[in-house]
């Protein structure tokens, strides 16, 4: 009995001390950079240029926010709209098309299945060939257009979605399909009215994971949608890196502005994001 309480006492000490040490270490390693972003974004220009990790003597948070939005006739606002259109558009297409593929791929055994499975895995592994993609996009007349970039994001993000949908469809009993067929449903109605609504939980996961990926994407917009008109937030932020090198307060205000949508997503969809990103989709 005494040894048992000894163990639990040791456990409690471990729980407290271990937790406290971890809180301090993670605070230094993970929270300080974010605090630095926030504090620098709140300073005036002169103080921010010192790059000190310190409390602002003069809070200029809202002035900086206003200045960032007014910079170059509101390029940030344009970029926000572009990023939103890109994210929403590509995810809407991606979800519907990949759900259709994942569903048929799981339900129908045909001689094409091995080829399709191979292509899906290839989409996860193979790095896209940049210049040939531009060449194809030019031939199709969609290079340097927002809808062109939307299709790019769809093509590159589809593999992950298909694997998620295929795995989930496997858990929906076939009896449900048969009942719907008995009731007179055709293939389209069966999918969109019966199966698709049942995919809701995995759809939410796919949407949040792909929203993070597409919203944060830098490489594809850089290659396939150059120029100011269609610039997305990440590309604008990158371009500002050169222009704002003497105005760190505005630079970090920009980073903060870009982080906010992800922070909100994380607060609301914490569980789905974690589930999606750790699902180990590569296992197929």
């Amino acid at each position: 009995m005494s040894s048992a309480t000894g163990i639990s006492k040791a456990n409690r000490a471990y729980s407290r001390i271990g937790g406290l040490v971890a809180i301090v270490v993670t605070a230094v390693v993970f929270l300080v950079p974010f605090a630095f972003i926030f504090l620098t974004a709140s300073k005036d220009r002169a103080e921010a240029s010192m790059l000190q990790f310190s409390w602002p003597t003069q809070w200029a948070f809202f002035e900086n926010l206003q200045e960032v939005f007014e910079h170059r006739d509101g390029i940030i606002i344009t970029a926000f709209i572009n990023s939103t259109l890109l994210t929403v558009g590509s995810i809407a297409i991606m979800v519907i098309l990949s759900a259709m593929v994942g569903y048929v791929l799981q339900r129908r055994k045909s001689k094409w299945n091995p080829l399709i499975n191979f292509l899906v895995l290839a989409g996860l592994i193979v790095p896209p060939a940049v210049v040939p993609t531009i060449w194809v996009m030019q031939a199709l007349g969609i290079y340097k257009t927002l809808h062109g970039l939307i299709f790019i994001e769809v093509a590159f993000g589809m593999s992950f979605c298909i694997l998620m949908f295929r795995a989930f469809v496997a858990s929906i009993p076939r009896e449900l399909d048969e009942a719907a067929i008995m009731d007179g449903a055709g293939p389209v109605r069966l999918f969109f009215r019966v199966i698709f609504p049942l995919l809701r939980s995995v759809i939410v996961t796919v949407i949040v994971v792909q929203a993070v990926t597409v919203f944060n994407d830098f490489q594809n917009p850089l290659y396939f949608l150059p120029g100011d008109d269609g610039a997305t937030l990440q590309v604008v932020l990158y371009a500002l890196q050169g222009q704002f090198s003497t105005q760190w307060n505005l630079m970090f205000m920009n980073i903060l502005v870009i982080m906010v949508p992800m922070l909100i997503m994380y607060v609301f969809f914490n569980r789905q994001i974690v589930a999606g990103m750790t699902s180990g989709a590569v296992k197929g």
Binding site: L97, R108, W112, P132, T133, F151, A155, G186
Partner: peptide, 21 residues
């Protein structure tokens, strides 16, 4: 009930922008 044309829209985009390049 699981028609092959369900593959078509995804297949067109994927082929044009990923497989061909």
């Amino acid at each position: 009930m699981y028609p092959m044309w369900f593959y078509a829209p995804a297949g067109v985009i994927y082929t044009a922008l990923f497989v061909v390049p």
